[in-house]
Design a protein around this nucleic acid. Structure first.
Lengths: 201, 201
DNA sequence: TGTACATCAGTGAACGCGCGTTCACTGATGTAC
DNA sequence: TGTACATCAGTGAACGCGCGTTCACTGATGTAC
């Protein structure tokens, strides 16, 4: 990796097949859904023989676990992006994180399902567990910054953000998904606000 | 079906294979998950040749659609059961419906996933669409009884009940799923209460 | 700077498997007369 | 009440398919000297 420069001729050694397989896996997930996801289809999409992924991920479960782990990182990123644009007070940050939660689910619904509604990845595996725990910890900290460490407050915020995301991503909240992005953000914010701890109740 | 009386000897004609396949399908779903669900495994479980289901459901998608439709009926039932035990005022009824929502997800997580996080059933099919619409309408009416027909209020209640259900069913809300049923009910109720319209805000 | 060699990252053929669907069939049931 | 017959609801063999995994292999890369 020191002096090689990228060229476009097909090479025997791919260069960064690991990353390419993750990209292809995501695309495959998005187009075919988890239920039709297969190792061979991903290899095909990456333009590589179907035995190649084994060198990087072991087996199909390894690939799915790595994909889900990557998903949790992107999931956190999406929240960070929103938070960076929001006011610094704890409440604004929490609401922004919620908007990022929804952003992610809408941008990558299949990945979202893989992370939250599939049992094909191995959630106890090394790449996955830390990534999903980081996401949970981030949420916990957001609630803590609001002055609560009550599990009920954490559950309330999480469940509400999650429910909106899941229903929107699967197209069940028709009236709401029909809204323009700004109006949708406003609606999500209003719903989340109801569920935050300590707003003078 | 007029003079036959049930006996226990295996018969060539099953009698009520349609219902038996739905039962077997649910069990299969619960044990193997959607992702491993197959027509053949269901037929096997029902003790019938793998070609038999075609007579009742056409193809695998037909069976899954019928299962999901049955799921939506049970889903409504679970809400009704809670509501029958609750006080008659609109708010108690709405909260009870939410508890029933959660009950269903916990009792039948795989069916819940089939209904809300799968694209294998055909949601526009004849058995399914009316069943899922009935569930949505029931929710809408509950919110209407509270004096609101604001889509935002509907979304708030639905998303929150759904989020709690989904996270609990997939075992993500560790602290909350560790609670005894009564305490869990209380927590769910408290969270839902926050999100109801018109409670003096 | 060159060379030998170990290691790494691919290939492609082969395997066995379970799947969904089709089909000709047959046993059971219900109905017309 | 009996009988002929149509229809219904199963069976089991067969098909073709895509899958995950294994394996011997080979081309490319990196490193020791």
């Amino acid at each position: 990796m020191t002096e090689t420069e990228p060229d476009d001729r097909p090479r025997y050694h791919h260069g960064d097949l690991q990353a390419a397989l993750l990209t292809a896996g995501e695309a495959e997930l998005a187009e075919a859904g988890i239920e039709a996801f297969s190792l061979r289809s991903v290899a095909r999409r990456a333009g590589v023989s179907h035995a190649a992924p084994a060198h990087h991920f072991g087996d199909v479960q390894g690939l799915l676990s790595a994909l889900a782990a990557e998903g949790f990182r992107l999931f956190l990123d999406a929240q960070m992006v929103r938070q960076a644009k929001a006011a610094p007070d704890a409440q604004s940050q929490m609401l922004a994180a919620g908007l990022g939660y929804v952003d992610f689910a809408l941008a990558r619904p299949a990945l979202f399902r893989l992370m939250f509604a599939s049992n094909r990845p191995l959630f106890e595996s090394e790449p996955l567990r830390p990534a999903s725990e980081a996401a949970f910890r981030h949420l916990e900290q957001g609630v803590a910054a609001l002055g609560s460490n009550d599990p009920l407050d954490i559950a309330a915020v999480w469940a509400t953000a999650h429910g909106i995301s899941d229903l929107l991503a699967s197209g069940r909240l028709k009236p709401m998904s029909a809204l323009a992005p700004e109006a949708r953000d406003a609606a999500v914010t209003e719903i989340l606000r109801r569920v935050l701890p300590d707003r003078g109740r």
